[in-house]
Amino acid sequence: KNAAQIVDEALNQGITLFVADNRLQYETSRDNIPEELLNEWKYYRQDLIDFLQQLD
């Protein structure tokens, strides 16, 4: 998997990933985040941060 796929997957589930103060953050109206997504975000944290910062 790559960062773009993970960001896309999150968006499809109503979750927006973004970077604030060099930390990976998310916004969602969901009550909870599936644990497998959280684990994936932790595992790919630096890739996601790098990818999202390139988009800014």
Rank of each mutant, 00 (worst) to 15 (best):
A10C: 03
G14K: 05
E27D: 11
F18H: 07
L38D: 03
Y44R: 06
Y44G: 02
F51L: 05
Y26S: 03
N32Y: 14
A4R: 11
A4D: 06
L38F: 10
P34V: 05
L24N: 01
S29C: 08
G14C: 05
N12F: 10
F51Q: 02
N39M: 13
L55A: 12
P34H: 05
Q46C: 06
N22R: 05
D8F: 15
L17E: 02
E36A: 12
D31H: 09
A3P: 13
E35T: 10
A20T: 11
D56H: 13
V7Q: 02
Q13V: 08
D47I: 14
P34L: 04
Q46G: 05
L55Q: 14
E36M: 08
R30V: 09
E27C: 13
L17C: 03
D56P: 12
L38Q: 07
F51G: 00
K1G: 03
N32H: 14
T28Y: 05
V7Y: 14
L52C: 01
D8N: 14
A10T: 03
Q53G: 11
D50H: 10
N2Q: 11
Q54P: 10
Q54Y: 10
N32F: 14
A4E: 08
R30S: 09
G14R: 04
V19N: 02
S29G: 09
I33N: 02
Q53M: 15
Q25C: 15
N12G: 12
K1L: 04
A20C: 11
Q13T: 05
V7S: 02
K42Q: 14
P34W: 02
I6N: 02
R23P: 01
A20M: 12
V19W: 13
N39C: 06
N22P: 00
N22Q: 09
N39K: 12
E9S: 05
E35V: 12
Q13K: 09
E9V: 05
A4P: 06
P34E: 06
V7C: 04
Q25W: 14
I15W: 03
F18P: 02
V7H: 04
I15G: 00
Y26H: 05
Q53K: 12
Q54D: 11
R45M: 15
F18Q: 05
I15A: 03
D21A: 06
Q54G: 13
Q5W: 06
V19L: 10
I15E: 01
E40I: 08
N22M: 08
E35G: 08
K42G: 09
D50M: 11
R45T: 14
T28I: 03
D8K: 15
D21G: 08
N2T: 14
L24R: 00
N12L: 14
D50V: 10
